[in-house]
């Protein structure tokens, strides 16, 4: 550790000032706009207005619901996938991890676009269903919550799998055999041993997936269309269509609060489980 404070500040300040000027200050002003009344005083009327609109409430709840569903689904699939990958031999494990990470390098636009081909009226799913005689008319999967759910899950699942892989690899090697020897069945092994030991990875992965889903723009924009909105696409509409900056500020604030709340809540859940176990 070097002691020279002036030197340290000279090195760190340009980056800090840049981030503050370009990012922090404008964002804080933007957020404060939502708390300003027409008379210039502080008020939360913009928020009561926002939630009194039933469309806004629907969008808010849909965003929350899809975020939660995608997080839960990615956790379930993520554990299965991470388990499978961790149990492979080293060379294969590296290649599989690489394949899981690969989609993260591809533009989200391209990744989301693929679902149009798959879920569209003349897409693979509909063609196959009609060919098999399962449906007569084409299903309307595109521009629905289901399409957004699928798109978000595909977009963020890799983040969960990677978090869980490193959590599983950091788990003491003998924990599972030890639990088995002590008579635990596989369900108990997962619930009593694996979950508590990997909960940090789950919290990290969960936060990434949940906040990612809340704040994704491309997926709801392409797969939800202009009818099935999420908060992020609603924000875009408010600005570009209605020029309603106060409403945009309200949505922005809600998004940020939800992101932070998710992080804190997940940490809470993890530590609460810990205390409960310690108390037993």
């Amino acid at each position: 550790m070097f002691q020279n404070r002036a030197e340290a500040l000279a090195l760190a300040l340009p980056a800090a000032l840049f981030a503050a000027a370009v990012f922090l200050v404008p964002v804080v002003i933007l957020l404060s706009d939502g708390f300003r009344g027409s008379d210039g005083g502080w008020t939360i009327s913009a928020y009561t207005d926002f939630f009194s609109n039933s469309l806004n409430r629907t969008v808010f709840l849909r965003t929350l619901k899809l975020g939660a569903l995608v997080t839960v689904a990615s956790a379930v699939i993520g554990y299965a996938a991470a388990f499978a990958i961790v149990s492979l031999e080293p060379g294969m494990k590296g290649r599989m991890t690489g394949l899981v990470v690969l989609p993260l390098m591809i533009s989200p636009v391209a990744r989301t676009y693929a679902w149009i081909v798959i879920l569209g009226r003349t897409g693979i799913v509909n063609e196959a269903f009609q060919f098999l005689g399962l449906t007569e008319a084409p299903l309307r999967v595109l521009f629905s919550e289901t399409a957004i759910f699928i798109g978000l899950l595909q977009l963020f699942l890799p983040l969960m799998i990677i978090s869980l892989i490193s959590a599983l690899e950091n788990m003491p090697k003998d924990a599972i055999p030890a639990a088995r020897v002590l008579g635990a069945n596989w369900f108990q092994v997962f619930w009593k041993v694996v979950l508590p030991l990997t909960k940090e990875g789950l919290v990290i992965g969960g936060t990434l997936v949940f906040t990612g889903s809340l704040t994704a723009y491309i997926t709801p924009a392409i797969l939800g269309g202009s009818k099935v909105l999420m908060l992020e696409t609603l924000l875009y509409q408010q600005v570009s269509v209605s020029n309603n900056f106060v409403s945009a500020s309200v949505i922005a604030f809600i998004l940020i609060v939800m992101s932070f709340a998710a992080n804190i809540l997940l940490k809470r859940v993890a530590t609460a489980r810990n205390k409960q176990r310690a108390a037993q």
Partner: peptide
């Protein structure tokens, strides 16, 4: 370095990752 306010600097420079991009742009 023993940087005064190191945590503040760290938070400020990494904040753009936490706040949704659309808000930053707007």
């Amino acid at each position: 370095y023993k940087l005064p306010g190191a945590e503040i600097v760290r938070t400020v420079v990494s904040a753009p990752i936490i706040v949704p991009g659309i808000i930053v742009g707007l």
